[in-house]
Every structure is written in structure tokens, then in C-alpha cells.
Design a protein around this nucleic acid. Structure first.
Lengths: 209, 209, 209, 209
DNA sequence: TCGTAACCGAGACGGTACGTCAGGTCTTGCC
DNA sequence: GGCAAGACCTGACGTACCGTCTCGGTTACGA
């Protein structure tokens, strides 16, 4: 689960790893990103704030972004554990439009939550320019969420609410990507109205019926 | 048009500015970003490569990102001037789907062009984390291109090919944003097939007709 | 009188020189040395304070020390003109010891005068490390004063108060140099008692008579 | 013995200090001062020449002058260690004049030694303008040497060769300071004849006996 | 039960780049 | 042509972090 310097020479012994330090580093990293921003967050700063030697960071992670990604994943897991069992699957009331609108409204709220905003923006930005990290970011954070849409759309297809020839992995992008872009690039305001509209446009198309 | 330190104290005298230096800095910045990547591109490196004092950069720009944004804008203007008059409006053959597919295919090609990729990725990444720059990036680079879609969609609406109640500024995001997200975040492959599909889904919707 | 870049190529035309600027530069240089010290006094600072272009300084002087030396000489001339005619020759009451003690006491006072201290210390320091300037400093400032001692000692020799075989130029150093060294190098306190003692030791020797 | 940042906040841990770096810095500082002069000697240059990071210099010293002073002290200690035990006390043959002349002639030689000249001139100059450093320069370099004269003069006083009421600390300045001033300020040539004369004048006075 | 080998906190080290300051040169436009 | 103004290239400043390294100390495994 933790990052592996697998076949590297003289890899550290994960069994002897200090749990206390690991968690202190997560806390420090998230706190610093929130307080001073990602660019001004430094490895030295994280180490100092966590009361940890720099080497302890370099031993287990390969970069600032790496630390933050794990810290953020850990944060998500904690939140999930706190929230109880179910990892918010998309509701299936039979009304696809309503279900999607509801979930997207929840996403709108999340995107406005400052606790998530700073680190996820930082990671997204880093991922734009650093393909390796970008792919990890997507695989570990984004794709699992998107999969929920795939599932819901498949269910709708089975119910005849979505055309049979539609690829759900592409279809979901019609309403998810616009939201993502507005958030990432400040290309427009992010509101319930907006996401509701996206769902309607996507489901029923732009052309007259 | 150029960046303005307008009301700042003791602003430099733009009339005396060295055109030679300005262009050399643009060249150096773009070359370095392409060669070594944005994070390893330094102000010092740009200055050295351009044969310019660091102070000449700090006098006219406030950050590395600032330099690169202007350099990239200048590059675009040059390209536009070179290409001749009209800055690629979207064709209007009467067949909306075909027109959109054609333009998006051109965009796919552009996204694969390494000359544009490095700087625009760098600027996009910086814009994610730096709202001020992000907004400038959008206003000066992105929005003008999006406006072309707005125009084409309005024309289609007049022709009855798009429903009258559709907001074109939102509608265009149905096919543009998914492409943008795949490019920015490596969430999927970028192909002609993919963009063609996006247009079809967006125009005709996901639900059975 | 002013410094000459004599045979240099395209020497400036001294006839068209701005007197107003020259004096403003002197004032600024002396004021800055007094206020912020010699090392923090800069050509740019002098120019700004004098309301003068940098080039006007570089046109007429070759270095910061050069400016200060001329400024200080000018200050001395002004003071002399203000004080009236005679430029303090050493009194000759017939009592050599008393005359020397009196002059040295005046020198002690001068060395404690902050108006003279900052610039003369700065010039002395520069002269230690820059032989060319050091020699100018000595020739134009120090030696004229020392010559007064030579005169007085010669008069004393004629009166039989000093041995005939004594070289006055060396003899004066017995009481002048110790004072100078204490001032320059902080090797000891500078008091009337001290200079009186120096005169006694120098005139009558250290050995029993 | 070494410089103490004693009560300063977060002082570096002297126990971990790199001896290799310390010595390399001394060497580089002395070499550069000798080769290019004190003003053109830079911290950056010393660091580069010593193969050391700039921070390593700033960590342990507060200024260029500080480095040079320690380097020069170290050089003296090395020389002393190399020369064997006794740190040249002044000989006591019973002939005071001869003993002093001999020592001063040795000093004349030393003042002409280029190895010592560059750094000691630089330090003296700095000390003229920077009282704190000047006092350290005197206390650590000058005063110990002067003390030897005090000892010899006291011995002479006990032997009846010097008057009982003479203060040796002042007396020594009669022949030491003139030499110092000629060296520091280029006020005259420095020869054996000159120092011999100084001793004679100082011991027997300027007045007829 | 006692080495001994690893992690750990700490932080010195050789570096690179930062953003600033000043040096000395050059250009522009006024007088 | 001197002058005020100030942009320019250059190079050093002192600082912040980088990633590596060494130093005691403290654990926890294996002889």
C-alpha cells in the first residue's frame, strides 16, 4: 500500500518504519499546503513542522509531490473510515437525471471545501506537468470516483434510459469534465444551476428532438 | 496590451525598453521550457541564454510564469501574422456535426505538437495553482478560441440545428472540456475517434430518441 | 586644481563643467559618508542625493574615493577661507615643548570632531589598501600639515633647542605618529595627557640624563 | 579562542564543523587577497576556490574581514608552530639600543614580505573604518607583539637604562608608531637607517644633552 | 542478554537559484 | 556638448532549499 522503492539497492526496512513520523509528516504537509500554498511548502518545512529529520522524508518518498499525494490519499481514507462504510456510490432512484444532478451538486460543494481545495489543486497542477505523478493522481484518486458514474450509466443503459451504443466512460465526461475544467482553470462559475444544465444538455443533446 | 505595472511606484520607462532584449527573452524562455521543462527553467537561465541581465527580466516581469505567458502570447501572434489574415474561425458548411468534428481534429493535432505542448502545459499547471495567472491565461489564450465555438453554435441555433434554449457558452464545454481534461490530466487517450464521439454524444444526447 | 584625466581620449571640456553639480556632489558625498558610513556610500546614492546623473560623476572622477578626497579637500579649503587668512602655522613662543603640546592638543580636539572623522577615516582606510590614493591623500592633506612641524623644529634647531644633527622630518614622527596610530588603529586612548607625555618623551628621551 | 556566536539564536554546532572546510577557506582567502587584492576578494570567490558552499562561510563568519582575520591569525599560529617554541621575545643583551634596532630591522623585513603584506594591509584598512574589527585586530595581532617591547623596556628600566618615570606602553610608540605610519600611509621610506635613527632619537631625545 | 544494525532527529555540507543592489557604460532628450 | 535620467549587462550580495552525508540516540531483532 505504501510507496515501494522495491528493487532499489539497500531499500529501507518498512517493518521498522516509524508510524508516528509518517502521520506527523502527512499532517505537516497538508497543513503547510493549506497555510502557505504548495510552492512555498518545502521538504525542510515539512520536516521541521513534523519534528522529523529530513532524511526520514527522503528515505520514504521521492519528492514533495509524492508526500502530498500520499498524505491526501490518507486523508481520503480517514474521511471514508469516519463517514462509515459505503464509499458514496451514486444513488439509483430510477431517475437518472435527478441522480446525476444530486451527485454533481455534492461535488460542487466539495470543490468549494477549502480543506480539499489546496492539496488537490496542488496535486492536479503538479500532475499537469509531471506525467508520472499525473497518472498516479488519476489512477488513485480520480478514476475510482469516475468508475461510480460508469456503474450508474451502465445501470441506466440496462434500464433503457441510455442508448445501448453509448460508451459510459466517455459519456460521463460530458458532465464531469466541464465541471473539472471550470474548477481547474477558472473558466467559469461553479453552481448548482450549471451542473444541472450540464446533465440536461448531456442527456438530451443540443439538437432539437 | 503588454503587461502594465501601471500605478506602481517608480515604474520603468517603457519607451526606453530594449526590443532586442524583450524578444531574446521570449526566445530563451520558450526554448528552455521546451528543452529542460518548466520547473528546471530558471530566471537566471533565461537571462543567461538571452544574453541579458537578470534585472532586465525583473524590471519588466514579476515571475517566471509571467514571462512565459507573454512569450507564448507573442508566439501565437507571430504564428497568426505568419498564417496570414483570418485567425481560424470555425467553418460553417451547414453541417454542424461535421464542422465541429473537423475543428476538434485540428485541435487534437495541435495538442500533439511539441512546440505548443511544453509551454502551454506549464502555463496551465501554473494557472491551476495561481489564480491570478490562471485567469490571465484563460482570458488571453483560451477564451478567444472558445468564442469561436460560441459563434458557430449561435449560427447553428439560428439555422434551427440547435435548440433555442441552449446556452452556447455552456454547450461548447460538452465537447471541449472532455478533450481538455484528457490532455491536462492524462485521463484517457486523445484521438479523432474520441472527439468525433464527443460531438455525436453532445449533439444528440445520451438518451434514446 | 580639479582632477585631470589629462591625455585621455575625448577628455571632457572642463570649461563647460557645471559648478552647481560639482558642489552638490561634494555635499552629497560628505553627507552620506557621515550618515551611513563609507562602505554604504555609493556612487548611485551620491548622484541621487546630489540630483545629478551618474555619468556626471563618472565623467569627472574615477572612483568613490576620488570624489571623497576632492570633497574633503574642498571642505578644508572652505574652512580655511572661513577661518580667515593664516592656515594655522605652529606658534613659536620660544618654548618648543609648550608650542608642540598646544598644537597637539588642538589636533586631539580635531580628531574627536565627527565632521572630520568620518571622511578622513574613510580616506585613510582606502589609502592603506590603494597606494595611489594613499599617496595623494598624504601629499595633499597630511604632508602640508607635517611641514609646519618641520618648520617649527628647524626654528628650534636654529635656536639651539634641538640638536643640530636631528632630521626634523623624522623627529616630528616621534610625537605625531603615535597619535596617528592610536587614532587609526584604536591602539589606545587619545588625551591631552597622552600627547603632552609624547612631547616630553620625544624631546628629552627615554634614558636618564 | 575562535570566534563565538555565543548567545545567538540557533548557533551552529561547532562540534560538527568540518575542519577540512575551515582550512580550505583560510587558504583560499589568503591566496585571493594576495592575488587579486582585498576589494576584489569576494565571499563567492573564496567559497568557489575552497570548494565549499557559500553558506558554510556565512555559517561560521559574519563578514569577509572576519574570515581574513581568522585566516591570518591561523597563519601566524602555524608559522609560530613551525618556527619552534619561543615566539620571538626581544633579545636582552644589556645593550637596549642595539636590541631594539635589531628587532625593528626584523620588522622592516617582515613589512616587505609580500605574504604578510596583502592580508595585514587589508585588515588594517578594514580596522580603520570598522572599529569592532579594528579592536579585534589590535587585541589579537598587534598588542601581543607590543607587549614584548613593554617587557624589554621594563627590564631596561630595572637595569637603570630607562628613566623610572617612563611608561613603557607609551615609550614603545616612539619608535613603533612612526614605522607603522610610514607603512600604513606611505608617508616615507622604510629602511634600516630609518629605524636605527628612530631608536636613537627616542632613547636620547631631540634636545641637546 | 547482549551486541548490532536499522531507523530516527538533527543539522552541516556542497550546491543552485533566488531576488536585490550597485558598478560602470550607453542612449535619449533637454538646455 | 554637458547634463539628468535611467535602461542595460555584469557580478556579488546574503538567503532559502535542495538532496547527501554524518553524528549520537534509541529501538528491536538475532546470535
Amino acid at each position: 500500500m505504501a510507496h515501494q522503492h522495491s528493487a532499489s539497492p539497500s531499500a529501507p526496512d518498512a517493518a521498522r518504519r516509524s508510524e508516528r513520523s509518517r502521520l506527523a509528516i502527512y499532517d505537516a504537509a497538508l497543513a503547510l499546503v493549506a497555510e502557505v500554498g504548495y510552492p512555498k511548502t518545502t521538504i525542510e518545512g515539512i520536516a521541521a513542522r513534523a519534528g522529523v529529520g529530513k532524511q526520514t522524508i527522503y528515505r520514504w518518498w521521492s519528492s514533495k509531490a509524492d508526500v502530498l499525494l500520499e498524505a491526501f490519499l490518507d486523508l481520503g481514507e480517514q474521511a471514508a473510515r469516519a463517514a462509515g462504510q459505503e464509499p458514496h456510490a451514486i444513488p439509483d432512484t430510477g431517475d437518472l437525471a435527478a441522480d446525476l444532478k444530486q451527485v454533481l451538486r455534492a461535488t460542487v460543494d466539495e470543490l468549494h471545501d477549502p480543506v480539499f481545495e489546496a492539496p488537490s489543486r496542488a496535486l492536479a497542477a503538479e500532475g499537469v506537468v509531471n506525467e508520472e505523478l499525473g497518472r498516479r493522481f488519476v489512477a488513485q484518486l480520480l478514476e475510482p470516483s469516475l468508475q461510480l458514474y460508469v456503474d450508474r450509466l451502465r445501470s441506466a443503459r440496462d434500464a433503457g434510459d441510455v442508448r445501448a451504443d453509448v460508451d459510459p466512460r466517455i459519456a460521463l465526461e460530458l458532465f464531469v469534465s466541464p465541471l473539472a475544467q471550470r474548477w481547474l482553470q477558472y473558466t467559469g462559475p461553479i453552481t448548482y444551476d450549471y451542473t444541472d444544465t450540464l446533465v440536461d444538455y448531456a442527456l438530451y443533446g443540443l439538437t432539437p428532438r
